[in-house]
């Protein structure tokens, strides 16, 4: 039996690089200065889906919700082997918390229709909340298996899955369809395949084409631009390189459950913490300095 998988991926700011240049004077991060990356555990989720397809056949569809720039992670999915990529983008989705996000993604999954597995990374590094996976599973009315390590067995509609629960592991038997969140230790994500990069680096969403044309032909008339856009879109379609783009209407989303109105959690206030530099004893980085410190700690019984 072959399996159809959907992988949810997210583009995130590279939180590991919040140093130096990325910091503004007020202590907040200059997001524009941060590189956007493929959320690390989503690569493990993609890998898990690709491995299922390799062993059993089937398809892998990647979806992401985000601004147009998120097409970058969709292309990265295609480079690694995804069959299809969908961008979910809509201004009305802005301000969505995890609950609204899970609603929107689950509507997109319903539109895709037939699937056996939904794979997600365990969590995204910009929030570490790990909420969207389980919330989506609930919205889809399917079982969830969090902290996936590996399939112990997969045949027919029944999967035996080993999951890591922190202080040990367990094996669950679950029937498809199901949602799985994948840990970074589950597998080694494959790199982009050179041949696929050659092919899919030209993959574009329609809105990207509009931008591309505007940059390529700044002085052209509107009519010329439109003609060029149409030409490019046609070429993308013929070559199966057009990234699908859906908005909230395409997925029949009830606006009440999207964006700010669909988000029960509201940010009440954001406080900057003022760091005080006084108050600590400076120890010189020398043998004597360190010796003196150790002595003090022994005298006050901090060190036994």
């Amino acid at each position: 039996m072959s399996y159809d998988s959907i992988v949810c991926v997210k583009q995130v700011p590279d939180t590991a690089n919040v140093t130096g240049d990325a910091m503004k004077d007020d202590g907040t991060v200059n997001r524009a200065a941060l590189p956007a990356i493929f959320n690390p555990e989503d690569l493990n989720a993609l890998e898990a889906a690709l491995a299922v397809r390799e062993q059993h056949g089937g398809t892998v569809t990647a979806i992401t919700m985000g601004p147009l720039g998120a097409c970058e992670v969709l292309r990265a999915c295609l480079y690694r082997g995804a069959d299809r990529a969908v961008l979910l983008t809509d201004r009305r989705a802005a301000g969505s918390d995890t609950l609204a996000t899970s609603y929107i993604l689950s509507q997109a999954i319903k539109k895709i229709g037939k699937y056996d597995f939904v794979f997600c990374g365990r969590q995204a590094i910009d929030g570490d909340t790990a909420q969207v996976g389980p919330q989506m599973a609930e919205k889809l009315g399917i079982a969830q298996v969090t902290y996936f390590e590996r399939f112990v067995d997969l045949s027919g509609r029944t999967a035996r899955i080993r999951r890591n629960v922190g202080n040990g592991w367990e094996v669950l038997e679950v029937r498809t369809p199901m949602l799985i969140t994948v840990l970074d230790t589950a597998n080694e994500a494959r790199p982009a395949a050179a041949r696929r990069v050659m092919r899919y680096k030209r993959a574009r969403a329609a809105d990207e084409v509009i931008k591309d044309v505007a940059t390529a032909m700044p002085d052209a008339s509107d009519a010329e631009k439109e003609a060029e856009q149409a030409r490019r879109l046609e070429a993308l379609k013929i070559n199966a390189l057009l990234l699908e783009k859906w908005d909230l209407d395409d997925i029949d989303a009830d606006l009440m459950w999207c964006g700010v109105s669909g988000s029960p959690t509201k940010v009440h206030r954001i406080q900057s913490i003022v760091l005080t530099k006084e108050g600590y004893t400076e120890i010189p980085p020398t043998e004597d300095g360190v010796k003196q410190l150790v002595h003090e700690l022994i005298v006050d019984h901090t060190l036994g």
Partner: peptide, 19 residues
């Protein structure tokens, strides 16, 4: 009042849900 550090530097966010 649900208080946690927020991504984006030296900041702490207070989250509420009232509806």
């Amino acid at each position: 009042l649900q208080i946690r550090p927020a991504f984006g530097g030296n900041i702490i966010a207070t989250i509420v849900n009232f509806d």
